[in-house]
Structure formats: C-alpha cells, structure tokens
Simulated scan of single mutants.
Amino acid sequence: MQPRIPRPTGIAAIIVAMTLVTLAGLLLPAVWYEVLDRRDPGRIVLGLVCVAAVFTLYGRLLWLNLMRRTVPAHGIGLAAIAAVCWTLPALMGAQVGWGSALVVPVGLIAVVLPLRAAVLVTAAATVLTPAYGLVLGLPVLNVLYQLVGVPVGAFSGYVTVWLFHVVQELREARAELARSAVGEERLRFARDLHDVLGHSLQAVALRAEVAERFVERDRERVRGELVEIQRMARDSVRDVREIVRGYRATSLRSELQGMSAVLRAAGIRCDAPEVSPDLPAHAHEPLGWAAREAATNVLRHSGATWCLITVRSDDAHVRLEISNDGAGRRPAPAAGAAAGAGLAGLAERMAAVGGEFTAGPAGDGTFRLAAAVPRAVPRAVPRAKGEA
C-alpha cells in the first residue's frame, strides 16, 4: 500500500519540524545543563532567549525558502544565526555543550545563498569552524566531528530543499498533464464535430445556391435540390448525435485502451485489460460511457496514483469495474463545478439500457465505479423529455 502524499505545505511543515528537532538535539542539552547544574538565572535566561531566537529565525528562513520566497535579505538572517551560535560558546563555555552550536548554521548555507556563494562559504566554514573549536578548547574528537559535519550539513540542507522542489514540480507537471489530457479529448471531439458539420453544412450551402439559380427556370430541379437538402440535414443531425453519444464505431476495447493511455500520460499507473471479442454489441456503448466518465473523474477530481480496470462477463451481465486510490485525497472542486453531475448522468444512462451502476468510496481509501449491462438485448426505453 502506497503512503498518502501530503500537500506541499504539509511536506514543508514536516521538513521544518524535523529540522528543528535536530537543532534541539544540538542546543537543548546545553540549556538543560544550565538549568540543572549551574542554576544561574542570568545564564539560563540568556541561553533560552538565544536558543528561541535561533529556532524561530531558522524555521522561518527554511520555510520561506521551501516556499520559493528567497530574497537576498535572508543572508542577513543567516549571518545573525551564525553570530549567535558562534558567540554562545565563548560566553557560556564550549565545554558544557555549547560547542555544538557552531555547526547549527551550516544547514542553511546552501538553502539561503546562491549555489556558487554557498560553495565558497561552506569551504570557508569547513576550515574556520574546527579552528574556532580548537581556540575554544573543544576536544579533538569534537573538532573532527565539525570538520566532517560542516560540509555534510550544508549538503544535506541543499538536497532536502532540492528534493522538495523536485516533488512540487512533479506534482505540478502531473496536474498539467491531466489538464492537457482533458483538453486533448475536447480537441478530438471538436475535430470530429467540425469534420461532420463542416462538410455537411458546406454541401447544404452548395445545394441551396443551385436551388437559388434554378428557382425561376426549373422548379422541378429546385424541388429535387430541396429534397436533397432535407436529406443532408437529417444525416447531419444523426451524425452529430452519433458523435455526442459516442455511437461512431464505439468499442469497449478502444475506450479502455484510450483511457489507460491518457491516465499513463498523467502519471497514473493503469493498464488496459483484455476484452473478450464475444461481448454483445450493445454492451460496448454504455460501458464505454462508464470508462470515459471514470477517466474524467480520475484526472479532474482525484489525486490517484494507480487505476485498476477489470472486465468480467457471465451468463447474465457484462461487468466493468474501475478502481483508483484517489478517494482519500480528492481535491476541492473548481468554482462553479457541479460535483457528481457526471456520475448522476451516467447512472441515468445505465438505467435506460437496463443496466446497473454504483460509484463511491470503497472504505479503504479507494474509489470504485462499477457498471453492468445485460447480455440480452435490452428493450427500447423512451428517452427523457428534452433529450436529443
């Protein structure tokens, strides 16, 4: 089972919280020593104020840079943190735990500064931090730790922010792919509609021009042209209906292959199942509707990472089931969107052919859409009032 991926702000908050916990491991033991052993109120207040200031400024700078709000003034904040962390050991005593504060600022070097400047500052800090530790009288083992910890800490901070930005860009790219897939489907529909109506209306216009030329000279010719115009208009209406309802060479296999291709382009794992060639012809169209509606819902209304499609057939029904893991992270609908209108319309379509339809969360973080069509040819059902 794949873990749920929080939103970018949630991931950023987790990174900041974990970083502050790491800083607490470096600074709080020294504060604890001041409180329990030295018990000097002045030193305790000074230590708490400095640690709180470092925590607040460090967390603020890290959050702003994760959110891509980097400004040159952040370098001043990094300098302030470095000044506090390098002054505390000299004032409070490096031997009682405050020496660990020397490596606190390194995690922000590559986060706040441009890359070239960060490399130079990290190289300088790698030399100066251990040297300053020796001046303060730190043990050799601590100095060796600083010698290794400074470049590792700077690189770790850089990689953390870089990975966060990569994940955010991949999320945005996936959303853009989903929008592109929906837009491509709209363009395909528009092309089909244009091909049918453009040709038909052009032919009607030509026939009308011919009738206009012969209106005074050959009424029989005009009557024939008008009859032809009527026939072409009826054919055009039928063709448009076929496009809108998906009657034109509708194949469940083609619909599922197209659906899986679109979802894979959007970064969602999906494979088209094998469809038996002996499915009844009348089952392809309504199940194709269900596949198209499911694809639209997965792309536009969920944060799914996988989609599973199954097709089964028994003596009574042909069944299509489509599941995805997006039920637990469904984004808010766009302003003005009619939530659930597509599913409601699909339920009406399935009922019109004597089929069965269910859709909703399955209770385990998945969303399940199931449609079934009788194998027997359904009786004609009167269309709803106003349906084209």
Rank of each mutant, 00 (worst) to 15 (best):
residue 3 P to R: 14
residue 6 P to S: 00
residue 7 R to A: 11
residue 8 P to I: 15
residue 13 A to E: 10
residue 15 I to Y: 14
residue 17 A to R: 04
residue 19 T to A: 01
residue 20 L to C: 04
residue 21 V to M: 13
residue 22 T to G: 14
residue 22 T to E: 15
residue 24 A to W: 09
residue 25 G to M: 14
residue 28 L to K: 06
residue 30 A to I: 07
residue 30 A to P: 15
residue 33 Y to A: 02
residue 37 D to N: 06
residue 41 P to S: 00
residue 41 P to C: 01
residue 49 V to E: 08
residue 49 V to S: 08
residue 50 C to V: 06
residue 52 A to C: 04
residue 54 V to E: 02
residue 54 V to L: 03
residue 55 F to L: 06
residue 57 L to S: 04
residue 57 L to E: 07
residue 58 Y to D: 02
residue 59 G to I: 03
residue 67 M to W: 13
residue 73 A to N: 04
residue 74 H to E: 09
residue 74 H to F: 12
residue 76 I to T: 03
residue 81 I to L: 03
residue 84 V to A: 05
residue 85 C to N: 09
residue 90 A to G: 00
residue 92 M to Q: 12
residue 94 A to Y: 05
residue 95 Q to H: 03
residue 100 S to P: 04
residue 101 A to H: 10
residue 101 A to D: 03
residue 103 V to P: 00
residue 103 V to N: 00
residue 105 P to L: 02
residue 110 A to C: 14
residue 111 V to Y: 05
residue 116 R to Q: 15
residue 122 T to M: 08
residue 124 A to F: 09
residue 126 T to R: 08
residue 128 L to I: 02
residue 131 A to Y: 10
residue 137 G to W: 03
residue 141 L to T: 06
residue 142 N to C: 09
residue 143 V to G: 10
residue 144 L to W: 14
residue 145 Y to T: 05
residue 147 L to H: 01
residue 156 S to P: 08
residue 157 G to K: 12
residue 158 Y to C: 10
residue 162 W to D: 13
residue 168 Q to M: 10
residue 169 E to R: 15
residue 171 R to C: 00
residue 176 E to I: 01
residue 176 E to L: 08
residue 176 E to Y: 04
residue 183 G to A: 09
residue 187 L to F: 07
residue 190 A to P: 02
residue 191 R to P: 00
residue 191 R to D: 02
residue 196 V to N: 03
residue 198 G to F: 02
residue 200 S to Q: 03
residue 202 Q to D: 07
residue 203 A to S: 03
residue 204 V to W: 01
residue 206 L to Y: 09
residue 206 L to Q: 05
residue 209 E to N: 05
residue 213 R to G: 00
residue 214 F to I: 04
residue 215 V to Y: 09
residue 215 V to A: 11
residue 217 R to W: 06
residue 220 E to W: 12
residue 221 R to G: 02
residue 223 R to A: 13
residue 224 G to E: 12
residue 225 E to D: 05
residue 227 V to A: 09
residue 227 V to G: 11
residue 232 M to F: 03
residue 241 R to M: 06
residue 243 I to H: 02
residue 244 V to S: 06
residue 247 Y to E: 12
residue 250 T to E: 05
residue 253 R to W: 01
residue 259 M to F: 15
residue 261 A to R: 14
residue 262 V to A: 11
residue 266 A to L: 12
residue 269 R to T: 09
residue 270 C to L: 13
residue 274 E to W: 07
residue 276 S to V: 08
residue 277 P to C: 01
residue 280 P to K: 07
residue 283 A to V: 15
residue 286 P to T: 05
residue 291 A to E: 12
residue 293 E to H: 14
residue 296 T to L: 03
residue 297 N to G: 03
residue 301 H to S: 06
residue 302 S to L: 07
residue 303 G to N: 14
residue 308 L to F: 12
residue 309 I to S: 01
residue 312 R to L: 14
residue 319 R to A: 01
residue 325 D to I: 10
residue 329 R to C: 00
residue 330 R to W: 00
residue 332 A to V: 14
residue 334 A to I: 01
residue 336 G to P: 14
residue 337 A to N: 02
residue 339 A to Y: 09
residue 342 G to H: 07
residue 347 A to S: 13
residue 348 E to V: 13
residue 348 E to M: 11
residue 350 M to I: 15
residue 350 M to T: 15
residue 353 V to D: 11
residue 353 V to L: 11
residue 354 G to N: 10
residue 354 G to I: 08
residue 355 G to V: 08
residue 363 G to H: 13
residue 366 T to N: 10
residue 371 A to L: 14
residue 375 R to L: 04
residue 379 R to P: 00
residue 380 A to Y: 10
residue 385 K to E: 05
residue 388 A to N: 11
